[in-house]
Structures are given as C-alpha cells and as structure tokens.
C-alpha cells in the first residue's frame, strides 16, 4: 500500500548499550514488528508510524538530552516505552512544561509519573511498582515469611520499590528487617559481598530485589556462594530471562527465585496476543512481550482515542482508571530450570 501522508512520529529513548541494554533491546524487539505490520496494513488512518529510537544507556542526563531532541528537533507526536525510573523521572518536568506530548507506557512502575503534578503527562499500561511489591509481600506472607529484606538500586527506581515494600509491610505492622543498596551501573562482575553481609546480618527469610538484571544476578551469585538459599524476588523491571541467563550456569544460584511480572508468561499464555506474539518474535521474553503489548495498545489508541476499553488480545480488554490501565501482577517462580506460575494479583 502506498503511504504518502505525514508520519506519526513516536520517540523512544531506551538503553541499547550499557548494563541495562537488554531491557531496551527486548522492548524494541517486541514493539517494532507491531509498528511494521501496522504500517504494512496502511498505518493509522493512512499515516504511517515512524519510531525514532535513541540510546540513553540508562543515564538520566542522556535521556533528557534525547527527549529534548525528540521535542525540539524531531517534533514527535508521542513518546513511547521509555525505560527506567530515574530516566523517566528526569524528563517529567520537561513534559509538563511542554504540555502537548504524552509519554505512552514507560517501562517503569515508578510512582512520580503516576501522581500529580506529572500524572497528566504519561499513560501507563504496566502495573506500578507499588502493585508489584505489594503482590510479592502478600505472596511471601501467605507462605508464612514475615522477615523480608530489600536490596535496591540507590536511585529513584530503587527508592520507589523500597518504599513500595515498606508501605506493603506497614499494612501488616511489619518493617523491612535489613536493607542494602548498590549504585546504578553496577555490573554482574562486581562483588556484592558487602550487600550480602549487610542483609544477612538480620537473618531475613526472603529478599526483595529492586534492581536490574546484572547487579541482581551478581547479588544472587554472591548470596548463594555464602550458602544462603532463601527466596529472592525480582520485580518486572529486572528482566527475568536476562537475569536467569547470567545465573543459570552457577550451581544453586538459579533456584528459589521469584519474579513478578506485569504481563502474562509469553511462553505459556493462551491469550490470542501471546499466540500472535510467539509467531512474531523469535525469542519470546516477558519484556519483549510487554513491548509487543505496549505497541499494540498504542496502535489501538492512535486509531481510536478516548475509548473506555481496548481489545488487544489479552484475557480481558484493557480498561483505564484515569491514565493507568487496570492491570494485574503475575507471579511466577523459577527453580530447577523451570518456570512455574504462582498466581495473578489484581
């Protein structure tokens, strides 16, 4: 089909290199085919979607620079699937000041973009970190585990998750038994012995990790090396498959891991979107599936804005509560090279 109309420009700033590159690349791998096929089918009302991607290496200042480029130079119509909390947090004032461009489905469950004064500038598909951490805390408590520790990235993302765990625990009168931080940009090869020592000093029964896959995997490696087999939970942002790839070869490390996700398991789900996704993408992952769903939802919204529900092939149509999709948290465990679904938390 001949597409000659002005394209709809969509900007995406994500880590395509650096320690979090897997996140950006997987999101892109999931979403790009959707835009391609939409364009192939005639685009949005005759207008093709042009996805402009810039690498920010998960550095907030680079994200800011990329966004300024998108707004001033590219004059984008929307922003899509930015990756990370500190990065997105950094550009929120800019979006508010700009007032016209909306950020669709940032890959972050962080709170600042969901509450005033910035809540008007973003639309969210994925569940918030508060929802994820609350689900994990509820899951552990249902298993009789009350002594919970937190390892978090010492930035806005980590702080958000940390606070989510803290709030969830406070509901049942508990508090975080021990905590440790690591710096953003830490890699798998770094030593996480100090963090293991700090956390294990209080003998927690489980650890919730608010991190990215490289340091999280490094921490799990050092934790298991000291003989601690307690469950370690990671939230969706960590990048479950990339994490497991790193620890799979280390004895005992890939056992007793818990993951929370904001999308169904792309390998096992029977939803039409999952079936279509498995046909489209060679290596299905949670994050690429999220990218896929993000793109599908964006296409639907661009096609017909302001609907009460959008059908994108999930078990239920996507409904919005304000600017946040009413979404679920999916918990699964990984032990002995196997995924196992635990449940869906609404």
């Amino acid at each position: 089909m001949d597409v000659t109309a002005a394209p709809i420009k969509i900007g995406m700033s994500a880590p395509l290199s650096g320690p979090a590159k897997a996140l950006g690349n997987q999101l892109l791998a999931g979403s790009r085919p959707v835009f391609n096929s939409t364009n192939a089918a005639g685009g949005i009302n005759g207008r093709p979607i042009q996805l402009i991607v810039r690498d920010d290496q998960y550095q907030p200042t680079q994200t800011l620079r990329n966004t300024i480029q998108f707004l001033r130079h590219d004059r984008v119509d929307g922003l899509f699937s930015y990756v990370g909390t500190p990065t997105v947090t950094k550009i929120l004032p800019l979006l508010r000041e700009n007032g016209k461009v909306t950020l669709y489905f940032p890959f972050s469950g962080a709170q600042p973009m969901r509450i005033p004064p910035y809540s008007d500038n973003a639309v969210h598909f994925r569940a918030s970190y508060y929802a994820e951490t609350a689900a994990l805390v509820r899951y552990f408590q249902s298993k009789g585990i009350t002594r919970i520790a937190v390892l978090y990235q010492v930035d806005a993302y980590g702080r958000n998750g940390w606070y989510g765990v803290k709030l969830a625990l406070e509901k049942s009168g508990k508090s975080i038994v021990s905590e440790a931080t690591y710096r953003r940009g830490s890699t798998f090869s770094s030593s996480y012995q100090p963090q293991v020592q700090l956390i294990m000093a209080e003998k927690p029964q489980a650890i919730i990790c608010i991190g990215t896959y490289q340091p999280a995997a490094g921490f799990i490696r050092d934790l298991r090396a000291r003989g601690h087999g307690i469950p370690v939970a990671n939230i969706s942002f960590s990048g479950a498959e990339a994490l497991i790839d790193l620890v799979a070869s280390i004895p005992n490390a890939a056992d007793n891991l818990v993951f929370s996700h904001v999308v169904p398991n792309p390998n096992t789900s029977r939803a039409p979107a999952a079936i279509e996704f498995r046909k489209t993408v060679k290596v299905p992952t949670f994050i690429s599936f999220e990218g896929f769903l993000n793109a599908k939802l964006l296409v639907e919204i661009l096609k017909s804005p302001n609907q009460s529900a959008y059908e994108i092939g999930l078990a239920e149509p996507v409904r919005f509560d304000g600017r946040q999709a009413k979404n679920s948290v999916y918990l699964s465990t990984y032990s002995h090279m196997q995924w196992q679904e635990i449940g869906v938390f609404k």
């Binding site: 950094k90 600042p112 806005a156 940390w162």
Partner: peptide
C-alpha cells in the same frame, strides 16, 4: 508531603 521518596531520590541524585 506528597509521600513520594522516588522523586526525592531523583532530585537528590541530580
């Protein structure tokens, strides 16, 4: 006041 440590952290980090 808005009970948002994440924003606070972002500001402090900058």
């Amino acid at each position: 006041l808005s009970d948002d440590p994440a924003s606070l952290q972002a500001m402090v980090d900058s």
